[in-house]
């Protein structure tokens, strides 16, 4: 997993609430047996007319050249629905390292963290401020300080993250490495409970 410390970047706004993982990556694109290549189908049905890649919907932010960057900003309750980790893979594969929203669904949040994508939960008010910015604005997400800043206005908000997960992300550690290191404890637990 790639570590994250500070991300300073423009952002892509998708100002829609309750974005479920079927919108992030529709089920028909889950048939790969690897983790790569999902980025091109991120928000597939919102991006193209009639599933046709030659007909991008002009009003969708991912199709607008003005918007770019490593930060995706979305409406509240992002990532609800299916547990498909393909949603996190498609976001990462499309070049995003941070998703900002005012609320995240649980499973998506875990999946993002397990793939080096940082979910930054901000207040509704701060989210509205970001959406009010134009496409030239950059955001700075500082994981060490747990802060997000709108560079143009210098407005800043603190965000929460579990201290264990923070250490993992700052260093690029996986949960699986940690769990493998506790094998002895696990085996002892099994002996005690059976």
């Amino acid at each position: 997993m790639k570590a994250i410390t500070t991300i300073n970047s423009h952002f892509v706004p998708v100002n829609i609430e309750n974005i479920d993982t079927d919108q992030i990556i529709p089920a028909r694109f889950l048939k790969a047996t690897t983790k790569e290549g999902f980025g091109k189908n991120l928000f597939r049905d919102w991006r193209y007319e009639n599933d046709d890649e030659t007909k991008p919907k002009k009003d969708f932010p991912l199709n607008q050249p003005a918007y770019s960057g490593e930060i995706l900003v979305a409406g509240k309750n992002f990532g609800c629905g299916s547990s498909r980790e393909h949603a996190a893979w498609s976001i990462l594969d499309a070049g995003f390292r941070v998703v900002v929203s005012s609320f995240f669904a649980d499973i998506f949040k875990n999946n993002a963290l397990n793939n080096g994508v940082l979910p930054v939960q901000v207040s509704d008010a701060f989210l509205h401020k970001i959406f009010a910015q134009d496409s030239n604005t950059e955001l700075t997400v500082d994981l060490e300080k747990q802060s997000i800043t709108i560079n143009a206005t210098n407005e800043q908000e603190h965000f929460d993250i579990n201290s264990y997960k923070k250490t993992c992300l700052l260093n690029g550690y996986d949960d699986i490495d940690f769990l493998l290191s506790t094998k002895e404890d696990i085996q002892q637990f099994e002996t005690l409970t059976t």
């Binding site: 498909r84 875990n110 999946n111 949960d175 699986i176």
Partner: peptide, 9 residues
């Protein structure tokens, strides 16, 4: 429900 990284774990 869990994601695939967790399935691996």
């Amino acid at each position: 429900g869990i994601g695939t990284s967790e399935v691996e774990m």
